[in-house]
């Protein structure tokens, strides 16, 4: 721990032509029958949507592997364009800029071994990104909830901010509230 870390700085407003990439939200192989969609808004302390945020997700593969695979931004060597994942390797990494309405989504496969997706939020006005987790209620039976150290450390009201709402069998709503009474639980790793 001898090396002092490089400080964080805001992602600013102009990452839009740089960080997002085609298929960034499409983590699941196209047409995979187990695909789930997680979607929601990023909201500020006034409850207004944040149209200039990026949400990144990271998760184990369905078999529980945590090593990830390359190929999230697979490129065409002739044109240099991003041609997206190959539909075979599960990379585990997603990146979605919010749209003009402040909405984000990821289409993915349920993670193996844990009931959650990891998420990091970046935005203009946010000087240091924020980590949270998206718990999928279908993976969260009583046993899993009791075994999860983070959920166990939170009271019911705070815990609820981390659990996505199922709106149809394969779709979950997860809003990220940066500030306010129903502020999302954000995490720190040290």
């Amino acid at each position: 721990m001898s090396h002092a870390p490089t400080p964080s700085q805001t992602v600013g407003p102009f990452y839009g032509y740089a960080l997002p990439f085609p298929g960034g939200s499409e983590v699941a192989p196209a047409g995979h029958p187990d695909t789930v969609t997680v979607h929601g808004y990023v909201l500020d302390g006034l409850g207004s949507p944040v149209p200039d945020a990026i949400v990144e997700t990271w998760q184990p593969a369905p078999d529980g592997s945590r090593t990830g695979l390359p190929g999230s931004l697979r490129r065409d060597p002739s044109s240099g364009k991003v041609i997206g994942r190959d539909g075979v390797d599960f990379t585990g990494f997603g990146r979605t800029p919010t749209d003009a309405a402040g909405r984000w989504f990821v289409r993915t496969l349920p993670p193996g071994g844990v009931p959650y997706l990891c998420a990091a939020v970046f935005a203009r006005g946010l000087v240091h990104h924020l980590y949270t987790r998206v718990y999928l209620p279908d993976l969260l039976d009583e046993g899993a909830e009791a075994a999860d150290p983070l959920l166990q450390s939170l009271d019911a009201e705070r815990r609820a901010t981390l659990i996505a709402t199922r709106t149809d069998p394969r779709t979950y709503r997860f809003d990220i509230r940066l500030q306010g009474d129903d502020e999302t639980v954000f995490l720190e790793f040290s």
């Binding site: 302390g45 946010l126 939170l154 940066l178 502020e183 954000f186 995490l187 040290s190």
Partner: peptide
């Protein structure tokens, strides 16, 4: 940054 930072402490994991 005014409306875009959490008021509550981060939860250590």
């Amino acid at each position: 940054s005014h409306f875009r930072h959490p008021h509550r402490s981060l939860i250590p994991v």
